[in-house]
């Protein structure tokens, strides 16, 4: 496990010293702040016109949507951030350092995932400051916001594992990003057909990401949803470790 932490700290440092990762972070927070302020402005106008001085509904109308937008942004952002984790190392011929050290494939996968995940947690924490800035000036439903935060934390964990797996499949970071994005989109839309046909409680619905993210972000914390995120994360980490092992037996 300590090797995984060493790799995680190293990944964190690599992200920290690269300008593009800070630019992405700043860009995402800037975009979300713009959306947040826009919604806040609309909300205040409506409140003024209806005379709702208590600002009832601020959580649902302003605070929660800011976090909801981050979930959508992460679907595109995480493949970009994670694509270089392993593919970039293969391309730069530096992966042999990890493969030749006395570190297991599982530890490499977990370490890489932790490094990327730490970065995403920072992004989530900074984004959470936007809705929390309303605290004190209005009644916020902190329970719902906490569930929303939990949904984002689990969502990011699963997306990071998917991005890492895609990054282990190819030595081309662009292809890895495209593959991760494709997997994310499949998880988002896999049950669209079933829903259109009126089916909402089948296996195909269970496989879909929105089935689990939706209730969580609305404040309904159910173990089946938590298990889904943990399972997706664990399965893709295991696939990454398996892919790393196969790199030792293939050229």
């Amino acid at each position: 496990m300590s090797a995984a932490l060493v790799i995680a700290a190293h990944e964190w440092r690599r992200l920290r010293v690269q300008a593009w990762s800070w630019l992405l972070l700043a860009g995402v927070i800037g975009l979300l702040a713009w959306i947040f302020l826009g919604r806040l402005d609309s909300f205040l106008r409506v409140q003024e016109s209806t005379g709702n001085a208590a600002h009832v509904g601020a959580t649902a109308q302003v605070a929660a949507p800011a976090l909801g937008w981050l979930a959508i942004v992460l679907i595109v952002l995480v493949p970009l951030l994670g694509s270089r984790s392993i593919a970039g190392e293969r391309r730069a011929h530096s992966l042999s350092l990890l493969l030749a050290a006395g570190v297991g494939d599982g530890a490499i996968a977990v370490g890489k995932w932790l490094g990327l995940y730490a970065w995403l947690l920072l992004l989530i924490a900074l984004t959470a400051l936007l809705p929390l800035s309303l605290y004190g000036s209005t009644e916020l439903d902190l329970g719902r916001l906490a569930a929303n935060g939990l949904a984002l934390v689990l969502h990011a964990a699963a997306l990071a594992a998917i991005a890492l797996y895609a990054s282990s499949v190819t030595a081309q970071p662009v292809l890895a990003a495209a593959l991760a994005l494709l997997i994310n989109i499949v998880f988002c839309v896999v049950d669209l057909g079933a829903r259109a046909a009126g089916v909402s409680n089948s296996l195909i619905n269970w496989l879909a990401l929105p089935t689990h993210f939706g209730p969580l972000s609305e404040g309904v914390v159910a173990s089946v949803d938590l298990v889904w995120f943990v399972l997706v994360t664990a399965v893709f980490l295991a696939l990454t470790a398996r892919q790393l092992a196969s790199l030792r037996s293939a050229d």
């Binding site: 690599r14 011929h93 030749a100």
Partner: peptide, 17 residues
């Protein structure tokens, strides 16, 4: 592998460090 030190044909370096 902890008993082996390995320098591949292309040194496994991290240019940004």
């Amino acid at each position: 592998r902890r008993g082996i030190g390995y320098l591949p044909e292309r040194a496994p370096l991290h240019a940004e460090l």
